[in-house]
Write a protein that binds this DNA or RNA. Sequence first.
DNA 1: TTTAATAACTGAACAGCATTCATTTCAAGT
DNA 2: ACTTGAAATGAATGCTGTTCAGTTATTAAA
Lengths: 214, 214
Amino acid sequence: MTPEKKRARSLEEKSFRRQQILDAASALFGEVGYEGFSVALLASKAGIVKGTLYLYFKTREEVFLALYDQSLNRWSEKFIQQLPESLEDRAFCELLYETAFGDPLYVPLQARLEKVIEHNVSLDCLLLSKRNFLQEVDRLAAASADVLRLRNEQALEVIKTLGVLIVGVAGADLAPSLKGEEIPEDVQHLLASFSSRPIFVKNAERIIQGVRSD
Amino acid sequence: MTPEKKRARSLEEKSFRRQQILDAASALFGEVGYEGFSVALLASKAGIVKGTLYLYFKTREEVFLALYDQSLNRWSEKFIQQLPESLEDRAFCELLYETAFGDPLYVPLQARLEKVIEHNVSLDCLLLSKRNFLQEVDRLAAASADVLRLRNEQALEVIKTLGVLIVGVAGADLAPSLKGEEIPEDVQHLLASFSSRPIFVKNAERIIQGVRSD
DNA sequence: TTTAATAACTGAACAGCATTCATTTCAAGT
DNA sequence: ACTTGAAATGAATGCTGTTCAGTTATTAAA
């Protein structure tokens, strides 16, 4: 748990310690999820005490925001890297879905970003995050424009809209907490009809086609 | 604050008291929003003490869930009632957006439903809520089928998908907490380009057209 | 090598939260 | 008037994120 006990004096050491905390947070999130997450657990996982955490992050939510920024960049990178030269709309949507939902942090954090995380964060952090977001959207749009044979402006609209759709379908799937429960037939059927993957893929396709034919 | 001090003995009186609490919760939510909401405030607003609240709701989130169920029914009712005999796709989407976002509770609660509220709620309450949801979706679909000249199955898909889109765009608008802050030009521009209304209307239209031409 | 200054780090304390439960209080039935 | 059962209470509990006066490791100076 505590690979480094030395104090962080230089800027380098400090940002290394900061990243250590974020790595611990990432691991903890994977174990207990958003709801089970606590500052006490994070501190213990990172091998420091709670007080030290607040030297590196002003609030618990700033940890999540930093985690979100990293997860967005990681996903964006991976998605762009996997994009072939050309792709059918359908396959494009499937790849986007798989890579986004494949990331252990991106979708859970994106889904809670505006309504939960951003609510307890300094303006500085928020602006930093928004600018990073803007940059990644631009990168994604530029990469997608070629693949989908769209003008850059159109690709930008596609990326923005599919981001919105991701958030929308993120809530659709059954909460893991209910996985073991006894759920009656009718409700089980309802939940199945809201399965996120087909909803996303089908409608993402419709949106791309809509943008293309404008 | 305390219009009724008498004890609730009969089932009627109890469900009346329950509704009193929900009304107080609704008013409180309007004043302080989701983040500012607390059980202590709610109790004081309802003219009872915290302990009494827990005779009527097992958890804080069950209050929100009950509030959500009512808001869904209220919005659905209002939307259906305002539907004319026939409507262009665009106007249909606009009406849906206006009525949904016009309700003071529906969108804020729907946006937090799966990722926050449902997390601390008994299975009974959850099933009740899901069944109510299913029923309202069916009502909405039936009413929309005529108006949009779609088969019932198609209308069902449209309603389900637009619900997802509502959740997606719900996070898009600027948090009210930042309304007064000094936000730089570039970020302001970014946020403006994510304004929920045009995104919803435009893409809802595309989705309806997609469903129609399947 | 000893001393002084700096700031990273600590951990106890705090205020606020949702939730619980032994006790009190009230209204209906006898 | 008395008994009874359940509604209502409010103090207590255990948890939360956050703060800060004090401690200690580290570097720079003497």
